[in-house]
């Protein structure tokens, strides 16, 4: 494994993008940063600018309004970078499956490539850590 990949695995900077989520997933993500779960142990920090990020964390469904924004943000992320879909919503549209503002058959992974899915409505913080660990093993 090259030094570059090793360093990348030790220092993931996360940009949190909430498309039309119900905010429950977002709260669980904030939980990750609290003393109890403390993801800074693994070098994971939340950054405010997509240009600094290695991971694009998407919560919520991608509706018609959000779609171009999600695409744009993905293009702005410096590669190599990952996309993690948190929650049933972003993985497979969840309970918003049949609503009018969502394009038919267009969950997140049809819009941008997704590297890891973390199911749950909302997923527990432990599940999110587990997902990230699985992503890193890949």
């Amino acid at each position: 494994m090259s030094l570059k990949v090793k360093a990348l695995k030790k220092s993931l900077w996360v940009f949190h993008l909430s498309t039309a989520s119900c905010n429950n997933c977002d709260i669980e993500i904030l939980d990750l940063l609290t003393p109890r779960h403390d993801v800074e142990r693994f070098g994971i920090v939340l950054v405010g600018s997509i240009k600094h990020a290695d991971v694009l964390l998407v919560t919520g469904i991608v509706n018609k309004k959000c779609k171009p924004i999600v695409k744009k943000l993905y293009d702005q992320m410096p590669k190599p970078g990952f996309v993690v879909a948190v929650g049933t919503c972003s993985a497979g549209r969840g309970m918003f499956e049949n609503t009018y503002m969502v394009d038919e058959h267009e969950p997140l992974d049809k819009v941008i490539p997704v590297d890891a899915y973390i199911p749950g409505c909302p997923p527990k913080p432990e599940a999110i850590i587990d997902g990230i660990v699985k992503l890193l093993k890949k």
């Binding site: 360093a7 030790k10 220092s11 003393p35 142990r41 410096p78 190599p80």
Partner: peptide, 25 residues
């Protein structure tokens, strides 16, 4: 101080090496 564990000692180096390996936009 915030009652967390905190990052390992090589964190600063890992951050820098990682950033050097990334794309410049």
């Amino acid at each position: 101080i915030q009652y967390r564990m905190g990052p390992p000692w090589y964190q600063g180096f890992a951050d820098i090496v990682k950033l050097l390996g990334k794309e410049t936009l």
